[in-house]
Design a protein around this nucleic acid. Sequence first.
RNA 1: GCGGCCAUAGUUUAGCGGCAAAACUGCAGGUUGUGGUCCUGCUGUCAGCGGUUCGACUCCGCUUGGUCGCC
Length: 370
Amino acid sequence: MFSFKILKQSKKNLARRGEITTSQGKIQTPVFMPCATIGAVKGISPEDLESFGYKIILGNTYHLYLRPKDEFIKDFGGLHKFMNWKNSILTDSGGYQVFSLGAAYKASNGKGESLVELKEEGAIFRSHLDGSKHLFTPKKVIDIQKNLGSDIMMVLDECTPYPATRKQAKKSMELTHLWAKKAIEYWQKNKSKKQALFGIVQGSTYKDLREQSAEYISSLPFDGVAVGGVSVGEGKTNMYKVMKWVGPKLPENKPHYLMGVGEPEDIIYGVKRGFDMFDCVLPTRLGRHGTVWVTTNWKTFKKIDLRKTQYRADKKTIMKNCQCPACSGNYSKAYISHLIRSKEMLGMRLASLHNLHFIQTLMEKIRENI
RNA sequence: GCGGCCAUAGUUUAGCGGCAAAACUGCAGGUUGUGGUCCUGCUGUCAGCGGUUCGACUCCGCUUGGUCGCC
């Protein structure tokens, strides 16, 4: 079961307020999805997420396939049951890992050997856990996600590295298109009503490729369209250009998902270009390393690094009028700074909670303003 | 009191008769579909005094401090 309806369309720009329905319930859009890569939003419990109002989180096919394995999760009763999460789950396909593992080199063998080999059939990669070889194909990635039982599945794509020449970007995009076609054909023959499948647009920083990719992916019978290959080091200017080119080309009646974004101002920009869904590791990654977002007006945003000397004795909470557990619980910046410096889990947790609460509040304000 | 061992960055330790290092700490940056409790920089050092030597952190002696053992 999957549906999307638009509740309100802005007259000023492409922003729209909508509602996604999965078998786990309803999701108000624009929405931010916290990353639970290995089946957990690092340091944060499902109860915490629920209390903030999060209705959907993101898991990762690559990670869960390697450990504890998708068959295991299937036998357990699915990912929702396994991680004790009642709301919706989107699983990323592993396309990003094809990118990030491809960029990583095995230092141990000294040959600069990539952990990934791309073929028309799929991607051959080595596990970062034990070095074993695996093959991901468009079909296999769907089968894995069926085992995981996520509500929204993503097709296998190649997240084009940045920078890429036009020639490389085109080749990479064509591979992504080929995989998308194989995936949707396979899915249509083996459809389950419970799950939805999204396609992914690539094309790097080239306008014509992005437009071509948006048109092609939009023409296939996916339940939603995602834009990938952004936030991979191309910089804000390029990223905003991609949003501007692709946003207007996406099918109006399907959700638009901007993958891997991001920063509060990037999300706001994305919403104005018609994007409905976002995910990013930043709230937890920044939090874990001691950086938190603050704002006074929800229009401009600042990051503060609690490790800095200036916060060492700061008795104030992170942000005024913030209802997150860290601020409403009256934890001082000085204390959290101390915890982060000491690599204490509680510090990482408090900072992550603040950031996740912050982004959820931002999304609520964005929805109210459309 | 006697004997052994030891003294290198704020801390714990490598090291060499000619170039002084690592880890942690401290300071400053970074992080956008998580190989991330991570990464990148920076600051900072041979206990003191003599001797041997072209040259001593290194070898020798003394002093101081520590540590272990014996009486």
